[in-house]
Amino acid sequence: MRPEILNSGYRPGTKLLFTLVRVFSGRPLPDAAKLVFYRPDFYGGPAKTFTHEAMRGPSQWSVGDRELMAAVVSQANDCAFCVGAHTATAEQAYRDAPKVRAVLTDLDSAPIGDGLRATLRMLTKLTRQGTVSANDMRQVLAAGVSRRQVEDALAVCAAFNVTNRLADAFDFERLTPDGYAAGARFLLKRGYR
């Protein structure tokens, strides 16, 4: 159930910003962006910093890889808003929509490297079961993934397990395909700040 405060509980300067975004973009600010402006000292600021570092900080994973991880984690959580947002962003980052769709349809036959496939399997298991074993990690490392890459993937997983739950708890409004595409362009240009 969507709390009304997420529609109206903002300071006048923030409301003005939302109006400017709507005027210049022709679209309302998505609920994910609105949430970080509500009580920014409690949730918004720390969440933006953590998510931006996970998704855009230095990593051996590409931006497309990390956006795909976000989409896969969101799919494991059945979070429709985030699946749409991060599928669109991964498609634009890779410039390869069929590749992204293939991963989300059938990970085993998708045209991706073994390391990414093993990592996505591990993230799916961690998201669904809340745990992974030492053997799961050995399989990821054996596929050529570095320890640092594992840490980076786990940061993406953590960020989106939180975001997915908030999106569902606050009933984030799903966007049109054009709305997701516009959001993806913004995320690729500006990141999560």
Rank of each mutant, 00 (worst) to 15 (best):
G13S: 13
V73G: 02
P177N: 08
S59R: 08
G144W: 02
A158H: 08
E67I: 10
K125H: 01
C82K: 05
N77D: 13
A32K: 05
P30M: 05
A93M: 09
A182K: 12
S59D: 12
N7Y: 07
C79T: 14
K125S: 01
L17P: 02
E4T: 15
V150N: 02
R66D: 13
A153F: 00
E173V: 14
F24V: 15
V156E: 01
T19F: 03
R101W: 06
F37S: 09
V150I: 15
D178V: 11
D31C: 06
K125C: 00
T89H: 05
A167S: 15
L187D: 09
M1P: 12
S74D: 07
H52Q: 08
F42L: 13
N77K: 08
I5L: 12
V156N: 03
F42Y: 10
G130S: 07
T176W: 10
T176E: 01
G130D: 03
G113L: 06
K34L: 13
Y192M: 11
A181M: 13
F42N: 12
A102W: 11
M137F: 04
S146H: 09
A134L: 07
A85C: 11
A169R: 06
R165Y: 00
F18Q: 02
E67P: 00
A90T: 14
M122F: 07
K34M: 07
G191T: 12
A143H: 03
A54Q: 09
R174H: 05
P12E: 13
T19H: 11
S109P: 01
D96W: 02
K48D: 09
P98K: 13
G26H: 04
A32D: 07
G13N: 11
E53P: 01
V103Q: 10
S109T: 15
V73C: 05
Y192G: 12
G84A: 14
N135L: 04
M137S: 04
K189R: 14
G183R: 13
V23F: 10
L123A: 04
P177A: 08
R101E: 14
